[in-house]
Design a protein around this nucleic acid. Structure first.
Length: 226
DNA sequence: TGCCAGGCCGGGT
DNA sequence: ACCCGGCATGGC
């Protein structure tokens, strides 16, 4: 298992991000089912476009497990058109609600219960749900302690020298889950929820990863670049 | 105008 | 175990 160069930075970074983005909350949704739907819709997609689709689903009376299970896939696709990849995403939404209804009686909480690793594996077995989507569902809809690693996380960690290059997403996830910690475990959920949100927001506002050695992150103005 | 968003799947080496 | 094309609209 590879290790980060500068483990302390992971928790120090939180203080810096928190100071900058004070109490940034996520995930924007009315209930846990909507979190899951949003997680699938936002794959490689601007959240603005997801908002449109969510409004359309609500207008169609489809933003609940039972209705979404009943409607046909092509109707679903027309309502979520604005997110792009609407045909595949309609199929993935149907796959998700199928399991949700058939195995858990439509209960999102029930689906995300139990051993975290087991619940996560259950999600990953559904076509259209990969690591990031599963962890978003667990962390934001299920209130489970599953740290979310996405492309941004790796880029930002690499840029600051917090992880060696070529660290896999799985390794990065365990590194974070081991070292991004608190003395009070009961606050860990909130901590990890903020952490992911802030990393995404930082990257959206300040940095495009395709320029190598780019030093523009707001964190770098506070922490020396490695 | 062209580039790219809060990924994931399937098929090919 | 990686690598890559496909999926597709909308905003800047």
């Amino acid at each position: 298992m590879s290790k980060p160069i500068f483990i302390e930075a992971l928790n120090i970074a939180y203080s810096l991000m928190r100071a900058r983005f004070w109490n940034l909350h996520w995930w924007p949704a009315d209930d846990s089912f909507e979190v899951c739907v949003g997680a699938i819709l936002t794959q490689k997609t601007h959240w603005k476009n997801v908002e449109k689709a969510i409004r359309a689903l609500k207008k169609a009376g489809c933003m609940n497990p039972a209705s979404m299970h009943k409607v046909n896939e092509s109707d679903l696709a027309t309502w979520i058109r604005s997110v792009g990849y609407f045909n595949v995403k309609a199929r993935h939404l149907k796959a998700f609600v199928h399991v949700l209804i058939e195995e858990f009686n439509g209960g999102v909480a029930a689906m995300l219960e139990g051993e975290t690793a087991v619940a996560r594996e259950r999600l990953l077995n559904i076509k259209g749900i990969g690591p990031e989507t599963a962890d978003c569902m667990l962390l934001y809809a299920g209130g489970r302690n599953s740290f979310i690693v996405n492309a941004y996380t790796g880029q930002i960690f690499l840029r600051h020298g917090w992880s060696p290059d070529a660290v896999s997403s799985n390794d990065l996830k365990s590194i974070c889950e081991t070292h991004i910690s608190l003395n009070k475990p009961q606050d860990l959920l909130d901590y990890w929820q903020h952490y992911y949100t802030q990393l995404v927001v930082i990257d959206k506002t300040s940095f495009r990863p395709r320029i190598p050695n780019c030093i523009k992150s707001p964190l770098v103005t506070l922490l020396p670049a490695v």
